[in-house]
Design a protein around this nucleic acid. Structure first.
Length: 276
DNA sequence: AAATTTCGCAACCGCAGGTGA
DNA sequence: GTCACCTGCGGTTGCGAAATT
């Protein structure tokens, strides 16, 4: 059926925004809210398409945006979330207040990806190109997956949309004790739940990898599982107790120091220079 | 100091999903 | 159920700034 262009491009400006345009956009949104992006440009007196206005607002003008370089903690979080979610920048951004998906995408493409490559780590899979670390990687992937499944089980027991977080939240607003459950219960977890629902993923079923060869979040994790099933099978048989322990041991107070831990730490093996 | 290359960021493009008529 | 529209997302590009030769 074809899709109509988002706007009539005749007479519409493109390219960098001028301070005057910014001012018009901010003024209008402050007074009226953005409402319909499509009609906003006319109402605000801008010769831009609605899409351009939305992008400018969301990526630059929004008052809650944090500008400036990413902190090491934020970088850690981006790396960790990317390992779970892949290139789902919006989902990653939802875990970093004040940061936009565009900003995170740029950070990844310009800094983090290169660093990983330099270290011989595949930025897509977060696995070392060398098989030297395979066992360690495998172990942590397996643990992560186990932790995820445990969280799912616990959530389904509680069978409700929101888990009270107040009990575990620290007063300064940082992430509380049950890191994984909070993550799982957040938008990030939502993406997993959606995928799980779609694909009827289950603990006992075989891994899910899309036919196109691309990997969904669940697929991402399970694909790793597939690739490494042989060597991890024993580890996967570790008692659920240890998996649960891992889950419960997930970082509290946003403390990612486990990433920096010694020789057998997956992340410290992969990203030593990031955390120095 | 000038020319060239590399980097980093803002913005654009096209696709997909959601929604309402 | 179909269609048109709107919005959000991820990939990509363009360009100015910074670094290098």
């Amino acid at each position: 059926m074809g899709r109509a262009p988002c706007c009539d491009k005749k007479g519409l400006k493109k390219g960098p925004w001028t301070p005057d345009e910014d001012e018009k956009l901010v003024d209008y949104i402050n007074k009226h809210g953005h409402g319909s992006w499509r009609s906003l440009p006319k109402l605000a007196g801008l010769f831009r398409c609605g899409k351009s206005c939305r992008l400018r607002w969301n990526n630059y003008l929004r008052p809650d945006i944090i500008r400036g370089p990413f902190t090491p903690e934020e970088e850690k979080l981006v790396i960790q979330l990317h390992a779970i979610l892949g290139n789902r920048w919006a989902a990653i951004a939802s875990q970093l207040p004040g940061r936009t998906d565009n900003e995170i995408k740029n950070l990844w493409n310009t800094h983090l990806k290169k660093r990983l490559l330099q270290m011989g780590v595949d930025p897509q899979t977060h696995e070392p190109y060398s098989t030297l670390n395979g066992l360690t990687t495998t172990r942590h992937m397996a643990q992560w997956e186990s932790a995820r499944l445990e969280a799912e089980a616990r959530l389904s027991k509680e069978s409700q949309p929101s888990i009270p977080s107040s009990s575990s939240s620290s007063s300064d607003g940082k992430w509380g004790g049950d890191y994984f459950l909070r993550l799982w219960n957040s938008e990030v977890g939502e993406t997993f739940r959606k995928v799980d629902k779609k694909r009827e993923y289950s603990v006992s079923q075989s891994p899910v990898v899309s036919s196109s060869g691309t990997t969904t979040e669940a697929g991402l994790l399970t694909e790793r599982k597939t690739n490494e099933d042989v060597c991890m099978s024993n580890e996967m048989e570790d008692s659920s107790e240890s998996s649960l322990q891992l889950l419960l041991d997930f970082p509290s107070d946003n403390d990612m120091s486990f990433l920096e831990q010694p020789a057998d730490s997956y992340y410290s093996l992969l990203y030593p220079s990031i955390f120095t």
